[in-house]
C-alpha cells in the first residue's frame, strides 16, 4: 500500500476529502488491522479527524439529484441509503450501553464513537431533507418518512444488535455479552455491511461525477469507520487472547448473523448503480475475510460454508 496515499487519507480535511478515492479509504481501514492501534491512539486520531457535518454543501447534489440522475438511479440510491439512515441511528442509540463496561481507555474512545455515530445520523438527516426532499420537523419525522424504503430484513442484524444491547445492559462487564455485541456491531454491521454500502454508493458517485456533498460526507464517514472497525477488531482480538473460550461466542454470533443473512425480501436494482448482485456478494465476503484473517480469527468448516453463501445485504451504520 502506498504510504503517501494513506497519509493523504489520514490528514485530509473536509474540503480535501472529496478528492480521495473510496478504495484508498477502504485500504486505510485495513492498513492498521495487523498492528491494531490502541484505544487512546484511536482517540487522538478522532480529535484530528473530526469534521463538521454542517459544513457540507449540498447545492450541487440537489441539482444532480433533480436533473442529472435517472429515476431508477434515484430509487436504487434511496433504497440503499435508507438502510444506512436508520442504521446510523440504531448504532448511535445502542452504543452507550457498551461504554458502561471495559477499560477506561475503551470508555474514552467510545465517547468519540458515540459522537461520530450521532454526526453520521445528522449527515443522513441532512441528505434526506435537503437533497431527497423528505418532509419532517424532527430527526424522527425524517426517519419515519424514509422508513418505507427500509427492507424487511433490516431488523435481522439491527434488531439483533438492539436485543444484544439489552442483554448487555443487564451486566455491562459480562465478557460473553460484550463479545456477542462486538461481533454484531463492529465486525458485521460496520466491518462488512457498512463498508460494502460505502464502496457501492461512493464508487457510483465518483464514476458518474454526481453528488459531491454526499461523496465528501460519506467518505469522511468511511474514514471514521476505520477507527471504529480498528477498535472493534482490537477488542475482539484482545478478548479472545484473554479468554480463548470467547472464540466460541464469536462463532455462535456469526452463525446467527449468517443464518439471518440468507433472507432477502426486496430486489434492489443494483445494476443501475453499476453493480451486480454477484459483485456485491464477493465484496461482502472479502470484507469479512480480510478482517478475520488480519486479527487471526479462524472459522470452522460449517461457518466457512456459510460465508461462501453470503447474500447481498445493504444497510450499515
Amino acid at each position: 500500500m502506498d504510504q503517501e496515499v494513506l497519509a493523504g487519507v489520514e490528514k485530509s480535511d473536509l474540503a480535501q476529502i472529496r478528492d480521495l478515492d473510496i478504495d484508498d479509504v477502504i485500504d486505510y481501514v485495513h492498513a492498521d488491522l495487523k498492528r491494531l492501534p490502541d484505544y487512546l491512539d484511536l482517540y487522538r486520531r478522532y480529535l484530528r479527524q473530526r469534521w463538521d457535518v454542517y459544513e457540507l454543501d449540498f447545492s450541487q447534489d440537489i441539482r444532480d439529484w433533480n436533473t442529472a440522475m435517472t429515476q431508477s438511479e434515484r430509487d436504487a440510491f434511496v433504497a440503499i441509503s435508507s438502510g444506512f439512515h436508520h442504521g446510523e441511528r440504531q448504532v448511535e442509540v445502542e452504543l452507550p450501553v457498551f461504554m458502561l463496561g471495559g477499560s477506561e481507555e475503551s470508555k474514552i474512545f467510545m465517547s468519540s464513537q458515540i459522537e461520530d455515530e450521532a454526526r453520521h445520523t445528522i449527515f443522513f438527516d441532512r441528505f434526506y431533507r435537503e437533497v431527497v426532499g423528505l418532509p419532517g420537523e424532527s430527526v424522527q419525522e425524517v426517519l419515519d418518512a424514509s422508513f418505507h424504503h427500509v427492507s424487511e430484513t433490516f431488523v435481522g442484524p439491527f434488531g439483533l444488535l438492539a436485543y444484544l444491547a439489552d442483554e448487555l445492559r443487564r451486566d455491562p462487564e459480562d465478557p460473553v455479552s460484550r463479545v456477542r455485541y462486538g461481533t454484531t456491531y463492529f465486525l458485521w454491521i460496520e466491518g462488512v455491511l457498512a463498508l460494502s454500502v460505502m464502496k457501492i454508493t461512493l464508487t457510483y458517485c465518483r464514476n458518474r461525477g454526481f453528488l459531491p456533498g454526499y461523496y465528501a460526507g460519506f467518505t469522511a464517514t468511511c474514514r471514521d469507520e476505520a477507527r471504529h472497525v480498528q477498535f472493534g477488531m482490537r477488542f475482539l482480538r484482545d478478548s479472545v487472547a484473554e479468554d480463548p473460550r470467547l472464540l466460541r461466542e464469536i462463532h455462535e454470533t456469526l452463525r446467527t448473523i449468517l443464518t439471518i443473512n440468507g433472507a432477502t425480501s426486496r430486489r434492489i436494482a443494483l445494476e443501475s448503480l453499476g453493480w451486480s448482485p454477484e459483485e456485491v456478494r464477493r465484496l461482502m465476503i472479502r470484507q469479512l475475510s480480510m478482517k478475520l484473517n488480519d486479527v487471526g480469527i479462524a472459522l470452522p468448516p460449517d461457518l466457512q460454508q456459510m460465508v461462501a453463501r453470503i447474500e447481498p445485504e445493504l444497510a450499515g451504520g
Binding site: 435481522g156 439483533l160 439489552d166 456477542r180 454470533t253 452463525r255 446467527t256 433472507a263
Partner: peptide
C-alpha cells in the same frame, strides 16, 4: 417488544 427471557442468538435465528 423486549426479550425478557430466552437465548437471544437462537431466538434471532428465526427472526423473520
Amino acid at each position: 417488544l423486549r426479550l425478557e427471557r430466552g437465548e437471544v442468538l437462537s431466538f434471532f435465528r428465526i427472526i423473520y
